[in-house]
């Protein structure tokens, strides 16, 4: 569910991939995030990471069943957050 404060949107997303939020979905996430003007952050364990930086997202070791928050701020924040949530909902082989 998204919450809105100004033009900042947040959405809590559960990690459904049995391998957790691993390198390939992280790559897909950052590549997708880069297509939007909105600033994108991933919040996990109380820390915020740049959602357009694979280097930063590699520090998010979120396992299956855990939750992360996607935060987007900018004119296309809604589209960005919808797209990025879909990427996290994809389950793929290791």
């Amino acid at each position: 569910m998204a919450t809105e404060g100004g033009n900042t949107l947040q959405r809590v997303v559960s990690i459904v991939n049995p391998n957790g939020f691993h390198m390939r979905p992280k790559s897909a996430f950052t590549e997708a995030a880069a297509k939007y003007d909105a600033e994108v952050r991933v919040i996990w364990n109380g820390a915020a990471y740049n959602g357009k930086s694979i280097m930063e997202l590699m520090l998010v070791a979120a396992p299956e069943g855990s939750e992360i928050i996607i935060e987007a701020q900018g004119p296309d924040a809604q589209d960005a957050i919808n797209h990025l949530e879909k990427i996290l909902q994809q389950v793929e082989a290791a």
């Binding site: 049995p18 391998n19 957790g20 939020f21 691993h22 390198m23 590699m58 520090l59 998010v60 070791a61 979120a62 396992p63 299956e64 290791a94």
Partner: peptide, 10 residues
Amino acid sequence: QPVVHLRALE
């Protein structure tokens, strides 16, 4: 051990 794998990459 997916969690071990994730933490190693982290």
